[in-house]
Amino acid sequence: MTLHNAGDLARRLAENAEAVCRHYLSAGRRHGNYWLVGDVHNTPGRSLYVRLHGPSEGRGAAGHWTDGATGQHGDLLDIIRESLGLLDFRDVADEARRFLCLPQPQPRQPPDRGRSHAFGHDASPQASGTADAARRLWAMSRPIAGTLAETWLRHRDLTRLSDLSCLRFHPDCYYRTDADSPTETWPAMIAAVTDLAGSVTGIHRTWLVRDGKGKAPVAMPRRAMGDLLGHAVRFGAVFDVLAAGEGIETVLSLHKIMPDLPLAACLSSAHLAAMAFPPTLRRLYVLRDDDPAGDHAVTTLQTRTQEAGIECLVLSPRLADFNDDLCYLGRGAMRAILHPQLAPQDVARFLHPVTH
């Protein structure tokens, strides 16, 4: 039987709670009737505890967990979502079914719209969050020059756009809020998520309004699909120095001020914390978003870089993020904000004077 119901999937996972924990929370260990680990991102420690045995529901149910440090709690579907940094429930359910060796649901065929599009659609509005589906959508998209994706970036005061090969545009990209919602199409900026070797493992979609000057009026105008863990949207080849942050517009704001600095957009705080380090990396700048999730990512990366022998420096915006700094304070102010936070040798290497 193919399972679509979240409760059914959570119950099946709870019946195999220890196996789930060993797979997704491998940094932890069993202690009596509990699995202990640092947090939902698989950090070593003992703050989070998962009940391994118990009733199927209610108080003390198997698979239920609590993080004593943060107060977070949930079931094993939440563990899968948070540990892998998944955004869509469909991707979480697909991963749970894969782990449980259950059949995946068959995708529905898109309705016949009686017309074709110059650059195609997603393979299906029901396309699963697989790397293959992501690569198909990437192949059906076009460079951003002269498109609404370029309009969107310029609207965010991002104008250095000539060398952004990891960004493309799709004029009619499928969007569905959930499996029971009607299918819509909106123009979308498509970003390639790649591994350290440059292979496309996933994509990120930003759905846009018809004039490109804002995000589409849908419930979740940003979504990623494919194999994301450890990977990123990358701008520039990395040698010894890299700056990494969450959002595409955030890291591109640094690209406007420091065009020679290699950048990585990891798309979420969980993925930022779990990013893979290039083998030649010696110094990592972390672009901190001004929120608790951003602080957690910084703390995790500081621990991981210390263990790897990589210098870790934090770049903090004056406003909520660096794109806000760029849009509302301007390039000169942003340069002044960054200057004292950079290693002295990187000031001369990367921080270009503001020209008009």
Rank of each mutant, 00 (worst) to 15 (best):
L161A: 07
T151V: 15
D157A: 14
W152S: 13
A197W: 03
A192R: 00
T185Q: 15
P182V: 08
T177Q: 14
T147C: 01
D132A: 15
A149R: 00
W186M: 03
V193D: 03
D157Q: 12
D163E: 09
L148D: 09
M189W: 02
T183H: 02
R142T: 15
A179N: 11
C173L: 15
A139D: 09
A127G: 15
R156T: 08
E150H: 03
F169D: 06
I144P: 00
G129H: 03
L148R: 01
A127W: 06
A139I: 05
I144V: 12
R136E: 10
T130G: 10
R136G: 09
S181K: 09
P171T: 12
E184H: 10
A179E: 13
A131E: 10
S165T: 15
H155C: 12
S181M: 11
D172M: 10
L167W: 03
A191D: 06
L158A: 11
A134C: 11
A192M: 06
G129T: 11
L153I: 04
W186E: 07
W138I: 12
T194G: 00
R136P: 00
S141P: 07
L153N: 01
E150Y: 01
V193W: 00
R135E: 12
T185V: 13
A191R: 00
L148P: 10
A145E: 10
A127M: 10
A127T: 14
R160Y: 05
D195P: 06
A127D: 14
D178W: 03
T147H: 04
L164T: 04
T147K: 02
P143W: 04
S162K: 05
P182I: 09
F169K: 02
Y175N: 06
I190C: 03
W138P: 04
G129Q: 07
T194A: 14
H155I: 05
F169C: 13
E184R: 13
G146R: 00
L148A: 07
R168W: 01
P143E: 03
R142L: 13
L158S: 08
C166L: 14
W138S: 06
D163H: 12
A191P: 06
A131Q: 09
A191Y: 03
L196W: 07
G146Y: 02
S165L: 09
I190E: 03
Y175H: 11
W152V: 02
T147P: 03
A133D: 13
T130C: 06
Y174D: 14
A149N: 02
A179Y: 08
P143M: 06
A145C: 08
A192P: 01
T151S: 14
D195F: 11
A179I: 10
M140W: 01
C166P: 00
A188S: 13
D157I: 07
C173Q: 08
R168N: 06
D172S: 09
D132T: 15
A188Q: 06
G146E: 05
R168T: 00
E150W: 01
M140F: 06
P182C: 03
T183W: 07
D163A: 13
I190P: 01
T130P: 04
D180C: 14
A149K: 01
